[in-house]
């Protein structure tokens, strides 16, 4: 059946079976592969997207139920190609990831937290990411990344421009 979705600010129409999850729809119909299937039973949080700014497990709802919501996936976070947003940059700065599989969900959970709470405590951060399982990091550097992002966002600090510059000559 035909569904109209608003994804990362763009209106799209997809034709899916009623049983298609939002996760499968986002990945397979829209080609947005940054949202990941981890457990497909609502525990691990790898499939997290934002629905009207709220972290939501896209494996636990059907695409047809997302009609009318503003959906944000990880692809909708960076301001433009090659430029990271503050949270993404903070995750790089603090190495708040390893394999990257849970990272999309973590960053969206962090974004939701920081939109409602400018100065989260460590406990607030732990609570906000407690529905997102990471098997690599033990969470320490993720928590630091979110603290760093909060600090920078509070100070309206633009992140330092990335050190990787390919326009420079080698020598």
């Amino acid at each position: 059946m035909s569904v109209e979705l608003k994804v990362n600010g763009r209106a799209v129409t997809v034709d899916v079976e009623p049983r298609t999850t939002l996760l499968d729809c986002v990945r397979d119909e829209l080609g947005l592969k940054g949202t990941h299937a981890g457990c497909e039973h609502g525990v691990c949080g790898a499939c997290t997207v934002l629905l009207d700014g709220q972290p939501t497990r896209s494996c636990l709802m059907f695409a047809v139920q997302a009609d009318g919501y503003e959906i944000t996936t990880i692809e909708g976070v960076a301001p433009q190609a090659g430029e990271l947003d503050v949270i993404q940059d903070a995750f790089c700065e603090a190495h708040g990831l390893q394999c990257g599989f849970c990272t999309s969900g973590m960053i969206l959970a962090a974004r939701s937290l920081l939109e409602r709470e400018a100065s989260p405590t460590v406990e607030d951060i732990r609570e906000a990411i407690s529905g997102n399982i990471c098997r690599c990091t033990g969470y320490g550097q993720i928590i630091e990344a979110i603290q760093l992002a909060a600090e920078r966002m509070r100070g309206q600090n633009a992140p330092a421009s990335p050190s990787l510059s390919r326009t420079e000559a080698v020598r």
Binding site: D28, K33, V77, Q88, C92, T103, S163, L164
Partner: peptide, 21 residues
């Protein structure tokens, strides 16, 4: 120094096996 791999993962641009169509 930063870990260079992180840059592609934080924007959802890792390339995992399930992403291969």
């Amino acid at each position: 120094r930063r870990v260079r791999e992180d840059r592609r993962f934080v924007v959802g641009r890792g390339r995992y096996v399930a992403d291969i169509d």
